[in-house]
Design a protein around this nucleic acid. Structure first.
Lengths: 149, 149
DNA sequence: ACTATATAGTGCGATATCGTACTAAATCAA
DNA sequence: TTGATTTAGTACGATATCGCACTATATAGT
């Protein structure tokens, strides 16, 4: 790699970091009481992929230490948004199930974000994202795979 | 906005969130002792833009509460990487200056990341970023401006 | 000038994140 | 089968992040 290209890669991650911070702030401003983006992300994954997965599966999916996932799940359970049951296939493990309240909470959060997304869409139309998102996915996939070596 | 476009925007922020997490982990793995990405980011900004700015300026630049910036700066000062001096133009305020040690620390961190960036560059060549980064910048600028209303 | 308001930084408490170490259960090795 | 190793989850402690409230200084209104 030409060393003159290095700043470009730093700039990429810099922009991504700032957007992440802004989007998280935007998001959390619409979530009630003690619930954060991390809680929403887990609920969202339980619906988008499937529920019944183990805490460790979820920790790997979200790239967080398992202790962090334990903490996040305990918060979700305290709010009645998920239930933890023993894993019938492994006595050490548990399975995470989303509750009706959890599903409603997630749907409401998504609906609440729609106006914000519409404001962004007015500036950046979907056609421009159709090209952008796959490129980010490509980068994410590579980094995710690269990490495991 | 067509409601069918909504998932695309969620996917955008989802990808950005994951990449941010992976890049931060990659980055912090290369930083010594008690120093995190937040510390590096501040040092980097003091060099990229200029030093001598106030803590509040920095807090705004990085979209963090001023209490968080106070904490981050105290950590940097404890490690001798920045110095805080009274602001000659405002008795309530201070100015943040990077030290030679801080400059060296930042340069070393950048150099240490070069191999990681090179691995990414082997997969995603700079030509593809040349187009990607400005688009992210556009989104970031809009969100940043939108936030202040 | 004097008062009211706004602003810069910090102390403090609450919660989040994460590393280390531990327990219990599963798997592997012989 | 038995003992060693691996794995799932958690308890605990350290630090990060952030909101609230406070002090000191600056600015605006009169």
């Amino acid at each position: 790699m030409d060393s003159r290209d290095l700043p470009l890669y730093f700039e990429l991650f810099n922009e991504i970091g700032i957007i992440e911070q802004l989007s998280r702030a935007l998001f959390e401003a619409r979530l009630p009481n003690g619930l954060l983006a991390s809680h929403f992300a887990v609920l969202n994954g339980l619906i988008r992929v499937r529920d019944g997965r183990t805490p460790l599966d979820l920790a790997r999916a979200y790239q967080v230490p398992k202790t962090t996932m334990t903490h996040t799940l305990s918060g979700l359970e305290r709010h009645g948004l998920v239930t933890l049951r023993p894993n019938p296939k492994d006595g050490r493990s548990k399975c995470v199930w989303i509750t009706p309240a959890g599903r409603k909470f997630r749907d409401d959060a998504v609906a609440g974000m729609a106006p914000e997304m519409a404001r962004l869409a007015a500036e950046i139309p979907p056609e421009r994202l159709a090209d952008l998102v796959p490129r980010l996915t490509e980068i994410r996939r590579f980094m995710d795979a690269d990490r495991e070596e």
